[in-house]
């Protein structure tokens, strides 16, 4: 059987076990993700990700990631990092590709290479206040996958479709989310 030799580096058994366990204990499934953001200068800021809440308690062990956000010189900025909208594309690609790997593992499909190009179309008249009828965010997002795997083209398409169906970031981008911002 191919199932026993497929290794995409995803522990599907652990994920399926977690799914079964969390059906019995839905409270443990409630996570809160967290990032901090600190202004540096101009449009440059630094974000940091460490702990999160999940499985009923704070989770902090050995986790600290930093990233920069800025804008390119075309925005009269210092170019110290990707723009926040590019970071959204990064998040979408990271989420969908993780899903492709997990679904492939579960379906017994060996992946050889997976590459995605993620593009967001953006009319910046919105954020500049130049036209009140133009929205601030993307007018559309396109993702294209190039996948080499031991599977038929239909099976590969199904991987990508299933990954979207189970993707958090895909959902965040395609459906409305209530956002509240406070000052303390």
């Amino acid at each position: 059987m191919t199932e026993t030799t497929v290794d995409n580096g995803v522990n599907v058994e652990a994920l399926l076990g977690a799914r079964a366990a969390l059906q019995e204990t839905p409270e443990a499934a409630k996570f809160t993700w967290r990032a901090t953001n600190t202004w540096v200068k101009g449009t440059h800021s630094k974000s940091k990700v460490e702990g999160f809440f999940g499985l009923g308690e704070e989770q902090e062990a050995g986790r600290s990631f930093e990233s920069d956000g800025d804008h390119p010189p075309q925005f009269a900025a210092d170019n110290q990092g990707p723009t926040p909208v590019e970071t959204v594309l990064v998040a979408l690609g990271g989420c969908l590709t993780a899903g492709v790997a997990a679904v492939a593992q579960q379906r017994g499909i060996q992946l050889n290479s997976v590459t995605a190009t993620i593009e967001g179309d953006h009319d910046i008249r919105g954020i500049l206040g130049a036209d009140a009828d133009v929205r601030n965010g993307f007018t559309g997002v396109r993702v294209n996958y190039s996948i080499d795997a031991d599977a038929s083209p239909e099976d590969i398409e199904a991987l990508v479709a299933q990954s979207q169906k189970r993707s958090a970031v895909f959902d965040i981008l395609t459906n409305p989310t209530a956002v509240s911002v406070s000052v303390s």
Binding site: E154, E157, A158, A161, Q162, Q164, K165, F170, D171, L173, T174, N175, P176
Partner: peptide, 15 residues
Amino acid sequence: LFSGSLANMAALADL
């Protein structure tokens, strides 16, 4: 407000 997931819902159903 409608979800932007229609293309994928259609793709899943077609597959």
